[in-house]
Design a protein around this nucleic acid. Structure first.
Length: 624
DNA sequence: TTCCCTTTGAAGTAC
DNA sequence: GTACTTCAAAGGGAA
């Protein structure tokens, strides 16, 4: 169980989320109460991380003596133990609230990795599915076309099948690759290219597995438990050298896939982050080139045709075949364009993507579910919903994702010690276009958040023109209202998600809708920053005994609601202002023109008067 | 075809 | 130390 008051941590905790509590307070005691909740929330999120770290440390302490690098110790050991336990009782015991959502899981090559856009395959671009082994399904009968699965849109990736049985030490990458290409579809992956970690998350909790699994999964769902029935494959276990003695010395996160040769796979580093690449890692030709270009020569391990495992990390993405073919043309034109040649070489460098954070993992998990519940297909709208659901999660649920994310980062760090997020910045990247820089345009973003607008506009000489808040050195209201700017855009604040307007006019960026915004904006003076305040104020697990806000409840039960609760009592104001996103101030207005998530997701049609004047509770003290 | 949108979190940069 | 920026996924929509 998480140590809720583990406190101390300040890392993963989204401090900005604490701010929203202040916005919501309408009384001092309320504020103090919320502040307490803020601290609780901060502690919660911190504890999510600390807990993970603590758990890892504590669990690895016992093994630290015999396993020098503790980083992946628990990861593998827990995996091994869980696998062994599961092997003993193939009764789905792993489905019974495993202490760690990420455990046990194994990594298997996913040739149609989510990290491979368009399913492009290359010997160096394979990624791996991490999954609980009871979910392994290597039955041929389960092999389906990728498209078939995609059409199925399974939110519960209980059946992930792949050719991983073919992809183990000693197996030729090329042969497998050819196998894939020649057979077109023998590989089945989870629909929507679910993240490798997704299978771990799906089933372990009720919120992961809605009551009614998709129809296409019915056949594989245990009628008793409602849980996807783990496939029974007698050939699975031999692939995993899970016996304690066999993996004891190898901290490699893929240790069960690494042939045991009696020597450590990972060099014991001295703690420096940019330590040499482990020689045991996959270093193929392209990787070699990539490493050579990015790291000092001594850091680049010698090139072996294939790694023992031939397993790169899911985050690695190499250029597609098209680029390789273009590279072959270089020989024909070698004399004329060295620059282009260099570019091609750079293009061949695999793109190691960032490890997914907790929310990203959650999104991958829940996206399909949201899509199924709503008529939405637009990711932007779905992400808004997911963002709110994320905050509605319990700490335990979030902890799972934080844990998974931490494991992901750990694994990523181990696989790519020299990798830095900076490497993926547009400026350093060839194959990727530089993303637009969100230039702050005048009249939005910081301009709106800047205090004392009246002061700036009228100056000290015309204080009589200042609005009241400005006179009291509070945040200017007149400026916002006068400019008609949408400092707290409806789309970004999520109000349209949880409490969508009943009339289209409230959705459209009409002047009236903008006029209603200042009240939301008025909530912000109490904010310490302009960062989005997404934290649900009355998180059921943050405020013990307090029921979750209707918005959250209804949102969580969006499927059940299905738009049939138009008159539900709902103080949408709870979320409206707090979810206002100033991350991308200029982007929210555009979203107004788009179909709102709420208009498409019935479950969020809760508050017909969301644009109506907000309750007084929204008025901040500055207004008073 | 490419970018935008939208979310949170992690990590990087800039001051 | 703080604020800001970029990137990670996703896929429809817009340019």
């Amino acid at each position: 169980m998480p140590q809720l008051n583990g406190g101390g941590g300040d890392d993963l905790g989204a401090n900005d989320e604490m701010i929203s509590f202040k916005d919501e307070g309408e009384q001092e005691e309320k504020i103090s109460e919320n502040l307490s909740a803020e601290r609780d929330l901060a502690d919660v999120k911190s504890s999510l991380v600390n807990e993970s770290e603590t758990n890892q440390n504590s669990s690895s302490d016992s093994e630290a003596e015999r396993r020098p690098p503790p980083r992946s110790e628990t990861f593998r050991d827990k995996t091994r133990e869980s696998l062994e336990e599961a092997a003993k009782r193939q009764d789905g015991g792993l489905f019974k609230s495993p202490p760690y959502p990420g455990y046990p899981f194994i990594m298997i090559p996913d040739l149609t990795s989510p990290y491979l856009p368009n399913g492009s395959l290359s010997p160096t671009a394979r990624t791996y599915l991490q999954m609980k082994w009871p979910l392994l399904d290597v039955n041929h009968g389960s092999l389906q076309s990728r498209q078939a699965l995609k059409d199925a849109r399974s939110p519960s990736p209980a059946h992930i099948v792949g050719p991983f049985c073919l992809e183990f030490p000693g197996q030729s990458d090329l042969s497998l690759h050819q196998f894939q290409l020649s057979n077109k579809v023998p590989v089945v992956q989870h629909p929507h290219h679910v993240h490798p970690l997704t299978p771990l998350i799906t089933y372990s909790n009720e919120h992961f597995t809605p009551g009614n699994p998709p129809p296409h999964l019915q056949g594989d769902v245990d009628p008793k438990t409602g849980i996807p029935r783990p496939p029974q494959h007698p050939d699975i276990s031999p692939y995993y050298p899970l016996s304690p003695g066999s993996v004891g010395q190898l901290p490699h996160p893929l240790g069960w896939l690494v042939p045991q040769q009696g020597q450590p796979v990972y060099p014991i580093t001295t703690g420096g982050f940019r330590h040499p690449y482990p020689t045991a890692l996959t270093v193929n030709a392209s990787m070699q080139s990539f490493l050579s270009s990015r790291f000092p020569h001594h850091m680049v391990p010698p090139h072996h045709s294939l790694h023992q495992t031939g397993i790169p990390h899911p985050a690695i993405v190499t250029p597609n075949v098209k680029q390789e073919s273009s590279h072959s043309d270089i020989g024909l034109n070698s004399s004329k364009h060295q620059d282009s040649k260099k570019e091609d070489e750079k293009k061949k460098q695999p793109h190691i993507k960032k490890p997914l954070n907790a929310f990203m993992l959650y999104m991958k998990e829940m996206r399909a579910k949201v899509v199924a519940e709503c008529t939405l297909k637009e990711s932007a709208a779905i992400n808004q919903i997911l963002g709110r659901r994320w905050h509605a999660l319990t700490r335990e649920e979030q902890a799972k994702y934080y844990e998974l994310a931490r494991k992901e980062r750990q694994l990523h760090m181990q696989l790519y010690p020299g990798w830095s997020a900076r490497d993926n910045y547009a400026g350093n990247q060839q194959g990727k276009k530089k993303k637009r820089k969100r230039d702050k345009q005048p009249g939005e973003g910081n301009d709106l958040s800047a205090p004392k607008k009246c002061r700036a506009r009228f100056g000290l000489d015309q204080q009589n023109n200042w609005c009241g808040p400005c006179r009291r050195k509070k945040k200017c209201i007149r400026y916002i209202q006068g400019e008609g700017s949408c400092a707290s855009p409806p789309s970004s604040d999520g109000s349209l998600l949880d409490s969508p307007p009943s009339s289209p006019s409230s959705v459209a960026p009409s002047p009236s809708s903008k006029e209603s915004k200042p009240q939301t904006e008025q909530m912000q003076p109490l904010s310490l920053t302009m960062k989005p305040a997404h934290q649900p104020l009355h998180h059921p697990h943050l405020l013990a005994g307090h029921p979750p806000p209707p918005s959250l409840v209804l949102l969580e039960n969006s499927a059940a609601a299905a738009g049939k609760m138009p008159g539900a009592a709902h103080n949408g104001a709870h979320d409206h202002g707090n979810v206002s996103s100033s991350r991308q101030p200029g982007s929210s207005g555009a979203s107004l023109a788009r179909p709102s998530a709420a208009s498409l997701c019935h479950s969020h049609s809760l508050h017909p008067n969301s644009t109506a004047p907000q309750p007084l509770s929204l008025v901040t003290k500055s207004i008073e």
